[in-house]
């Protein structure tokens, strides 16, 4: 509860200060975010990989993207998990602090979009805390929520695969965090035009 007191005298890292200044202006882009985590508990689990795309003016900008595998050797060792996937992956490999720093730079003040985005944000916040940073300040949109709002459904949650099925977005034969982010991005574009979000 007194967390904020603990932090009050701590100097935030440079990239975080930079991040905060970006909120002086209004966001002009969306960032679709997808993470792979070791589990569902924000306190104990860690992010294993991140994929993100920017959407500007209703277009997914392929170049404006971020993807990385996080080198969580410590965590994997503690839990006696295999780290083969890190070796297999062709994505860029960064340590957690590096990855979080570049991700924060990448996100900027954009509106975050994701599937069950709040969990993603929670995971990021935990990682940020480890780096002596504050919490994310971005606005966030959830495609599942958007869909339920569009169809007026309140009693049911939809997985990403469900939604992709509904909107006929093909499944990839090479699933990855980036791939998920891309599918969420397509979903978001479709829902956005249906809901008339500007």
């Amino acid at each position: 509860m007194l967390d904020w007191l603990k932090n009050i005298n701590k100097e935030h890292p440079e990239f975080w200060k930079n991040y905060l200044t970006k909120f002086d202006s209004k966001p002009n882009r969306f960032v679709v975010l997808s993470t792979e985590t070791s589990g569902l508990n924000p306190d104990k689990d860690v992010i294993l990989s991140v994929g993100a795309f920017a959407i500007v003016e209703d277009a997914i900008i392929i170049k404006d993207s971020f993807e990385s595998v996080l080198l969580q050797y410590q965590f994997l060792q503690d839990h006696q998990l295999s780290n083969d996937f890190i070796i297999d992956s062709k994505m860029k490999k960064l340590t957690e602090p590096e990855a979080i720093e570049s991700l924060i730079d990448f996100i900027g003040n954009a509106v975050l979009v994701g599937h069950h985005i709040n969990f993603n944000i929670e995971m990021l916040n935990e990682a940020l805390e480890r780096l002596d940073c504050g919490r994310l300040r971005n606005e966030a949109l959830d495609v599942d929520m958007m869909y339920r709002k569009h169809k007026d459904i309140t009693d049911k949650e939809f997985t990403l695969d469900d939604l992709c099925e509904i909107y006929k977005i093909p499944k990839s034969d090479r699933p990855s965090t980036s791939e998920n982010a891309y599918r969420i991005a397509l979903l978001f574009l479709k829902l956005k035009s249906r809901l008339g979000i500007k």
């Binding site: 209703d58 277009a59 997914i60 900008i61 392929i62 170049k63 991005a185 397509l186 574009l189 479709k190 035009s193 249906r194």
Partner: peptide, 11 residues
């Protein structure tokens, strides 16, 4: 080329 592409969705 692909990394410079923009992806659009048309209703």
């Amino acid at each position: 080329i692909a990394s410079n592409i923009h992806v659009l969705n048309l209703e």
